[in-house]
Design a protein around this nucleic acid. Sequence first.
RNA 1: GUCCCCAUCGUCUAGUCAGGCCCAGGACACCGGCCUUUCAAGCCGGCGACACGGGUUCAAAUCCCGUUGGGGACGCCA
Length: 547
Amino acid sequence: MRSGHGGILLPERRRWLHHGAPSRPPPCVRSRPAGRISAPRPSPRRLTLTVRTRVAPSPTGDPHVGTAYVALFNYCFARKHGGQFILRIEDTDQVRSSAESEAAILNALRWVGLTWDEGPDVGGASGPYRQSERTALYQAHAQELLDAGHAFRCFLTEEELAALRAEHQATGRRTALDSPYAALTRAESDALVAEGRPFVIRMRVPREGTCTIQDGLRGTIEIPWDQVDLQVLLKSDGFPTYHLANVVDDHHMGITHVMRGEEWISSAPKHQLLYQYFGWEMPALIHLPLLRNPDKSKLSKRKNPTSILYYERMGFLPEALLNYLGRMAWSMPDESEKFDLATMVEHFDLDRISLGGPVFDVDKLSWLNGKWIREDLSDEALAARIGEWAFQPDRVRALIPLLRPRLDRLSDAVGIGGFFFQGLLDVTAEQLAHKVLTPDQVRQALTWTSWALDAERAWERPAIEAVLRGMSARLELKLRDFLAPFFIAIAGRPSATPLFETMAILGRDLTRARLRQAVDALGGVSGKEEKRWRKEFDAGAEAAAEE
RNA sequence: GUCCCCAUCGUCUAGUCAGGCCCAGGACACCGGCCUUUCAAGCCGGCGACACGGGUUCAAAUCCCGUUGGGGACGCCA
């Protein structure tokens, strides 16, 4: 057995605790951890080793409820075992990462009530906690693998790669993609570097046999090696990919248990292999079931609000949201529905995680939230919470330029600006009826615009205006006609504060949700129609991009 | 298409590893009733599931195999 921390693996898994000498794990899928790790044996010495978990969000967008969900489980596991929980920023994607997103994610996680022992904001002994500040480390490790022959330089251009993929696909790919440069000698490879050819570093992967990985919830998982990519470890910009950075950091940060989304199972073999190449002990892998949309697909903003900011804006209490996330795939021993973070920690047990992907059900979240409001807040506390929520100075301040010209009495502010404080509006098809456009045209305008807004990175008035004007032109509708249904969808009436500013202030998520609600009021978009529209939409977007 | 994961009411789940206590329990939603100046809240009740087919066993929601269904991965994104 590896000498390190393996013994503390999932120590609460029953057989472990109650039967000193672990018997053979049953052959069932959810085999005991005893069968998962080479040969761990409970020992008092190892139990003193500290559990360390982490959550590692990528700052490429709005804070996602899935991030909070994974963070919650990592937090609970670490706390339950007296260990540490770490926050690490995985900003290795230079193009998509942003400081604003990072700040928003940190704020959102703090908002739901999670805290971390080490992170970019609080520091710690294993820092820095932002991967963009650790590039030298990854480069050194990539070099080490290169020198050891565990990795090679790949000089394939993007076009060549695309062609290879297409060919692979066409011939009915049975195995992962290969690279012709894998066969080069080091001298040949060095020569190409000397020529100035750009390259990436890929890892070598066995081309036959089967990789066996151990999952803390599922037991043994076997994946044929020929299904595993020759994964890029170091990109041509010198930055590492997730796979390299994550392994290097988890090792150097002393992570003992990696709890992450199930979507990572298929890359686990690469990670395991990297640990072997480096000669490091691998943390225990625990893959959490994915949060789902009502149609069971992986939770996505297109189908369900996913941003924590949205839930804040809608008036959900952070403790209720966190509580609800704790009900996703996990249950209290007595099945209680309402519990706080400390209680969840106290009872946390991997054995109580169920594996079917849970559908994120906003209705049930609302009920839970109502329970928290009714049962846990005094009149004073509730009054304070409503005030804090509604009258956040920055938010109210932003409305003033829109309200001022329209106010004769202060009380007018409620009628004119009330919709800023509402959640979803109950817009009907009748309200959305348009004097020139057909309901289908309205539906299309709202849907396409919503898509176009999703593709827009900046959520600011000029960008929003450009998208709406562009879409109106593209659909060949007069701006006035085109905009009319948006006023209804966003403000609930035909005339309101200026639309672009209003949407900017309302925020991306609430705007998206209201547009979607309006579309739904008109009958929604069927799967077939969405497919067709999506095709036309993308084609048009491409044409526009080429101009 | 290939590989992997998963499978209890519409949804979240208990029960599954240690088969009998389960003709399957709780919660959301929905429906009905009570309470109530209204609406909520609260309380009471109703509807509603072990995907299917084979095994193993005295006994299977629970163990095994297969089928079906759902999901994920197949990026110089994470």
